[in-house]
Amino acid sequence: MSETIVVLISLMIIGALVAIETPRLLYSIISVGAVGFLLSIVFLFLSAPDLAITQMAVEVITLVLLLQCTGGLASEQVSDQGSLFSRAATGTILLVLALFGASMLADFPEFGRPVIDRFADTPSGIYLREGLQQTGAANIVTAVLLDFRAYDTLGEATVLFCAVMGALSVLRRQGRRQSEGSDQEGEEVT
């Protein structure tokens, strides 16, 4: 089981490298889509079917958005040659973070033994034990989302709404034309 997950994450790493290194944007977008779908399969192997479904749906919308954004526009090639200083700075940042992460890895709990094994009274344990009686939901993940932590979901909806409003206000043309028109009128008056 855990070997399968290792193989899948390795494939994800390869896909991410291809997505970042390939010069063509179309190939890059398709590769990152492959990484997302592999992540969905990893979620299935990690016993998270809800996450797998959500990841699939979100990944499809992500691909459509990115292709819509760049499909007609991006035939140009942008070179990624940085100066020596910027490459050295990047290398230093990544090296420091890698060392930091390596020193953290030793303290992580062993893979496959979640916190609820060691501490019985964590919120997760309580949700698992009392979820069905308190909420009547057989799926504990939805019980947590919509009942125990419903305020988090409300906040999620707020953030999502704000992001969509931001995207729409950046993209809409009506207001921009009006303001440009009023600028021209002002110039005519002066």
């Binding site: 016993s47 998270a48 988090d152 979901t153 969509v164």
Partner: peptide, 29 residues
């Protein structure tokens, strides 16, 4: 059973990620 709490919070995070992506793509266009 696996731990349900990280799954529920990551589910929230995935959906928020989609909204943020839409904002980034709009700015990029």
């Amino acid at each position: 059973s696996v731990d349900p709490l990280p799954q529920a919070l990551v589910l929230t995070s995935i959906v928020i990620g989609l909204g943020v992506l839409a904002l980034m793509v709009a700015l990029s266009i």
